[in-house]
Design a protein around this nucleic acid. Structure first.
Lengths: 171, 171
DNA sequence: TCAATATACTTAACACCGTTAAGTGCATTG
DNA sequence: CAATGCACTTAACGGTGTTAAGTATATTGA
């Protein structure tokens, strides 16, 4: 907060006239960025007739977004819900993250619906979309936070991850 | 640190006679816990002849471990590498996390080796094991940090996740 | 026109944090 | 019996987010 104050050439307390606290400030900044992701996912949803291609592209967009805005991603999905012991402090309640997820869910639903085979009744849309989100989040968050790990090439990892995800909703 | 000091009924500075700093203390505590995970994974590796069954069980063990020790898991895989901007501060360099991962990698390697079909040369062991770890981490870390999200049943999520993972090394 | 009020901001301080420098009392040693 | 080492503490530093109180300046209403 003091660093921000110095940068904008105001006293630290001035910030509190515009934001409730640090958490509020961070959330508002991140909402702005995540609106871009939601918009991108919406556009992909509209662009592709084949829901599988759409899902692939959506997954790619999610990963690329996270890697392009690592700090924003960290704030929303890694840092924010840290202090849950203190009864809801630093809780992220942004609408844009939800919106982005709902596009993913919709896309997954379309994939499952289009399946002719038996997996229709086996795969639950909620379960599938949550597992897919988790897989995406796992890769992005590890790539962001564990930079020193001897990772394989980023392209191969992303490719294999998306391959794995698509197989879940296929056949 | 002050809370710990109060709990053990010593002055805060006494802790610094036994641990370099807070990070060191946390890492040492977590190493102890993670040794349990490594041991468990080793036992599973030895128990199962079928590497696919072994991998399934190993994945389950990983998830259960994380959910049983959420704070330790958070320290090692979520919190620790947070301050990477300040040149390596709070960097986790524990050996037990690596050990646990190496068991996973070994198990994945055995699965891929046993495959008769063409995917042998398609699936890279490093890529596959890293993607699988990422998927596991994604689910556990989200379940730990985003408790308020409207999750599907934990059993279904875990089941679907492991199903998805197994499919990656199969066929 | 002049006092009352609202606006935009600051100063000083609080309570907390991890951490360090310096010191204290006590046991062990030569 | 003095010197050294050991286990621990007190006091303080520099940092954090945040609040209470105060201060100019602009805007308003009688």
């Amino acid at each position: 907060m003091r660093k921000i104050a110095e940068k904008i050439e105001y006293s630290p307390t001035t910030i509190y006239l515009y934001f409730k606290d640090k958490s509020d400030l961070l959330v508002q900044i991140c909402e702005e960025t995540f609106a871009g992701l939601a918009k991108k996912l919406e556009a992909i949803d509209a662009k592709y007739d084949d829901p599988f291609e759409g899902l692939k592209e959506g997954c790619r967009a999610y990963i690329n977004f996270a890697l392009k805005h690592p700090n924003h991603y960290k704030v929303v999905f890694i840092m924010m819900p840290q202090e849950e012991a203190d009864a809801g402090q630093y809780e992220y309640v942004g609408s844009m993250g939800d919106k982005a997820f709902s596009y993913l869910r919709e896309n997954v639903a379309n994939c499952i619906k289009q399946n002719k085979k038996s997996r229709v009744d086996v795969v639950d849309v909620d379960v599938a979309s949550q597992v897919i989100w988790a897989a995406l989040h796992g890769l992005t968050s590890l790539l962001i936070t564990h930079k020193d790990f001897p990772w394989a090439s980023r392209e191969k990892l992303i490719g294999q991850m998306i391959d794995m995800i698509i197989r879940t909703v296929q056949e």
